[in-house]
């Protein structure tokens, strides 16, 4: 099989992988904000709920989470398609790490900024959204970029719950062609390529934000 033909047959899988990456990222970003801010809430129940979510999903295997949502949840009466399951589990898993990124960036903003906001009589909410969060955003970007890549790599797990993503297609292709070295080599290359594209994207975003404030690279 020619190199071109190999790539072609992997394309469908690539689409699934990208879809999972995009969907998972959206869920992860949403959850990261909710849980990250939740951990800083003044309400004890909100704080505790966020903490439990973060610890559970950081403290257990992503693969087992995937199996649980795929095999156990239907037994409890909740039926999700494999794609939705993949998006939800990836989002929940990476979102838990993301929550720590959000929280860490917010508490890293110096108290002098909060004090200036208090002196201007801003409410707690205004202090957070007008002063702290915009600055924290810049500090979140580099670790968020790393998590994005983690998420992209973790999409390969869904090949174990019947989704024909890049890795799944690769397995089939290897079985058909018996060209293990080339097929898996190509897989590595494609994942690496997606990762590089994500890095470039996040860096560009970082430069744009920092450049606007004339602040140099996130400090």
């Amino acid at each position: 099989m020619s190199f071109f033909a190999l790539c072609w047959s992997l394309l469908d899988g690539l689409a699934v992988t990208l879809l999972l990456t995009a969907g998972g990222s959206l869920v992860a970003i949403g959850l990261a904000w909710i849980a990250g801010l939740g951990r800083l809430s003044t309400h004890r129940v909100v704080r505790a709920t966020a903490a439990v979510y973060v610890e559970v999903f950081r403290g257990t295997s992503a693969l087992v989470q995937l199996y649980w949502f795929f095999y156990a949840l239907p037994l409890l009466g909740v039926h999700l398609s494999p794609l939705v399951t993949g998006v939800v589990v990836l989002g929940l898993n990476i979102g838990a790490y993301g929550a720590e990124v959000v929280r860490g960036a917010i508490v890293s903003i110096g108290s002098d900024q909060r004090e200036a906001a208090v002196a201007l009589n801003m409410t707690r909410r205004q202090q957070l959204w007008l002063v702290i969060v915009p600055q924290a955003l810049l500090r979140m970007l580099p670790p968020a970029g790393n998590l994005l890549i983690e998420l992209m790599k973790a999409t390969a797990l869904v090949s174990l719950i019947t989704l024909s993503d890049l890795t799944f297609r690769g397995m089939i292709l290897r079985a058909e062609t018996l060209d293990t070295v080339q097929v898996f080599g190509l897989l590595l290359l494609i994942y690496f390529g997606i990762g590089q594209a994500l890095i470039v994207g996040v860096r560009a975003l970082e430069r744009r934000v920092a450049g606007r404030w004339h602040m140099g690279r996130a400090t």
């Binding site: 002098d112 200036a116 002196a119 009589n121 600055q135 404030w213 602040m215």
Partner: peptide, 20 residues
């Protein structure tokens, strides 16, 4: 506190401007 704070303003040694 917010009502009382509205009467007072402060300038800090290290400016504490909002960099963004």
């Amino acid at each position: 506190l917010r009502r009382m704070r509205s009467k007072v303003g402060m300038v800090f040694q290290h400016f504490n401007l909002f960099p963004h």
